[in-house]
């Protein structure tokens, strides 16, 4: 299987390294045509405003259509913002394929960025997590399964084929979160 990493801007290399550690082949994707033959797509951290401007409308629509066919996607930080159906202070989401509302930079500015460990339902305990000017999930629909919280806020969730996290598992050497996504993609691909 090949897992794609959206490479318009952001921490692309780190996701490629994490997938590599699991022995999973990866491909960086900048255009629609790069999506062919993939088993899943990771939307990395970066600046969500910049990434959304770099992805033109037809690319965003294509990603939305793809997600609706059940194609597995995993968004971290800015990637989560792109996948969320609602963004506080904004009229609409970007790709908008997971029924959550997120608050951008909810953890504050860089001076408040932090690392911690999380217990993640379905993944395990003491998973290291790096939060950088992180968004939080402020509300979610009934079909969304929250998987982890920090300080009373949801920071990871899944709705069928869409997985999102506020934090950066790719900045750590722990591969359990990526392993979970790869497992999810394999399951869906069957």
């Amino acid at each position: 299987m090949i897992v794609g990493v959206l490479a318009l801007q952001g921490a692309v290399r780190e996701h490629v390294i994490s997938l590599n550690r699991l022995g999973i082949e990866s491909r960086v994707v900048k255009r629609e045509k790069g999506l062919e033959g993939l088993s899943g797509l990771i939307l990395p951290g970066g600046e969500s405003t910049a990434i959304s401007l770099l992805a033109d409308d037809s690319f965003l629509h294509h990603l939305k259509d793809l997600a609706r066919t059940g194609f597995p996607m995993f968004g971290t930080c800015a990637g989560m913002i792109l996948l969320a159906s609602g963004i506080e202070g904004r009229d609409a989401g970007y790709i908008g394929v997971i029924d959550i509302t997120v608050s951008r930079n909810a953890s504050g500015r860089q001076v408040d960025s932090f690392e911690t460990i999380l217990d993640i339902e379905g993944i395990g305990q003491d998973v290291p997590a790096v939060f950088i000017r992180a968004p939080y999930i402020t509300s979610h629909g009934a079909s969304v399964r929250p998987m982890a919280s920090h300080d009373g806020q949801w920071v990871m969730a899944r709705q069928e084929n869409i997985l999102v996290a506020s934090f950066h598992p790719e900045l750590t050497e722990d591969t359990r979160v990526h392993e979970y996504f790869v497992g999810m993609a394999k399951e869906i691909g069957k």
Partner: peptide, 21 residues
């Protein structure tokens, strides 16, 4: 427990800026 200002948190923000202007 939160650890702020670690080197990973500091260099991590730079990683997020990659490929950008």
């Amino acid at each position: 427990m939160e650890k702020k200002g670690t080197y990973r948190v500091k260099s991590g923000l730079a990683e997020m800026l990659k490929g950008g202007v």
